[in-house]
Simulated assay, not measured.
Amino acid sequence: MEQLVQQLRPHVPALLDRDGNEAVTRVQLREILRREGLVGGRNDRLSLVLQQLRSETSTTTTRSTTR
């Protein structure tokens, strides 16, 4: 799962900017998986991946707005 998060992480900020979201969605995650040809997008794993990416995104967002 950690490897999948690392592969997805660089693509998240661009989608958040494009769509105006504060947190990545399951639909956006599936879009990245398809576009990049990544495997491991089963529903049970996606929930854990989403949780980790969202926690990282909210921490980063909080830090950047505090500055």
Rank of each mutant, 00 (worst) to 15 (best):
G20H: 12
Q51S: 12
T59W: 13
R9T: 04
R63V: 08
Q28C: 03
Q3C: 13
M1E: 10
R35A: 14
L15E: 04
Q6R: 13
E36Y: 07
R67F: 13
D19T: 15
L46H: 00
L33S: 02
Q3T: 10
T60W: 12
R35E: 13
G37S: 05
L50W: 01
E56P: 02
S58A: 14
E31Q: 12
G41S: 05
R63A: 14
V27C: 13
E2G: 12
E56K: 02
R34M: 10
T60L: 10
A14F: 11
A14S: 09
T25R: 01
L15W: 06
R35N: 13
Q28F: 01
L29Q: 01
I32P: 02
L4Y: 04
L33I: 14
Q28N: 06
R54E: 04
N43A: 11
V39A: 15
I32C: 02
G40W: 02
R26I: 05
T57K: 04
D17G: 14
Q7N: 08
V49H: 00
P10G: 07
L50D: 00
V24R: 00
P13Y: 07
T62Q: 13
P13E: 05
Q7W: 07
V24C: 03
G20S: 11
R34S: 11
L16I: 08
G40L: 04
E31Y: 05
V27L: 10
L53D: 00
R35V: 10
E56I: 06
I32F: 04
Q6C: 02
R18Q: 14
E31P: 04
Q7E: 12
S64N: 09
L29H: 02
G20E: 05
L16Q: 04
T60Q: 14
R63H: 12
Q3F: 12
T65C: 09
P13F: 08
L16F: 09
D17W: 05
T60I: 14
Q7K: 05
E31G: 05
T57N: 06
Q51T: 04
E31M: 11
G20W: 07
R18Y: 09
G20V: 06
D44H: 06
V24G: 00
T61D: 15
R9I: 03
V5M: 04
D44T: 08
A14Y: 08
R45L: 09
G41H: 02
I32V: 07
V12R: 01
E36G: 06
S55D: 14
Q6Y: 06
